[in-house]
């Protein structure tokens, strides 16, 4: 183990870390914003739309993100739609993360007794306020631990973006390794960075769970 070698390449790794963080945060934000309202569909009774969402969620959770990214990167180019690599990665990762979040949010929403929704309806409260102020707050303690552990998977999942030339942490580490033929220090270093980021997420999760403790 040669620390000076690692330190020499650390700035490059940290620059790549920034890409990983950006991709993770953007994927989490987009997939969460999409899944929050979509998860509501079908909670009270199944409909055509909710069935299609189920099919989508099942499909996207079954197909590896790698395949989705390849499909978007090469498939879209085939039909003449060329997106920048970062946008392609973000789109693919978001499609996949949305499917997971959809399932996670649903399970949380299902845990809230249906009668409260009826009571709120009977009072004339608009739907979006029912979900925002009554149902989601109660679903939080159920869905948060799963959501946050899934967020760690999203973080690790950004490494598949390396295959479509995104200079994120894994891609960059691989590149340094192939140039220097010294995998040990570099891979250990990038692993340490992933662990640190994951640690941040689990700190956030500890904090969030305390805030949303079940009543």
């Amino acid at each position: 183990m040669d620390i000076t070698f690692l330190i020499e390449h650390l700035p490059t790794l940290l620059r790549a870390t920034r890409v990983t963080v950006e991709l993770t945060v953007a994927t989490l934000v987009l997939s969460t914003l999409l899944a929050l309202p979509l998860a509501v569909i079908g909670i009270e009774k199944t409909s055509g739309v909710s069935r299609w969402l189920n099919v989508y969620a099942l499909l996207m959770r079954s197909v590896p993100a790698l395949v989705v990214l390849f499909f978007l990167y090469f498939g879209l180019a085939e039909v003449g739609l060329v997106l920048p690599a970062f946008a392609t990665a973000l789109l693919g990762l978001t499609m996949s993360a949305t499917a997971y979040n959809l399932a996670i949010f649903r399970s949380g929403l299902m845990s809230v007794p249906r009668g409260q929704i009826e009571a709120a309806r009977a009072l004339g409260i608009p739907d979006w306020r029912i979900w925002t102020f009554i149902v989601y707050p109660q679903a939080m303690p159920v869905l948060l631990p799963i959501y946050l552990s899934n967020a760690t998977l999203v973080l690790k999942g950004t490494s598949v973006a390396s295959i479509i030339t995104i200079p994120e942490l894994t891609a960059t580490a691989n590149e340094i390794v192939s140039l220097t033929y010294r995998p040990f220090e570099i891979l250990l270093g990038s692993a340490a960075i992933y662990v640190a980021l994951g640690g941040l997420l689990s700190l956030a999760s500890r904090y969030a769970e305390r805030t949303w403790r079940t009543r």
């Binding site: 007794p113 409260q116 009826e118 009571a119 709120a120 009977a122 009072l123 004339g124």
Partner: peptide
Amino acid sequence: RAQRAGIGMVFQNFNLFRNMTALENVMFA
């Protein structure tokens, strides 16, 4: 919604909003 507001309904299982205090339950709607 406006008409429902004029019809109070009380359920067998109470159906209070469990994330709110008694006061908040009454104030919310």
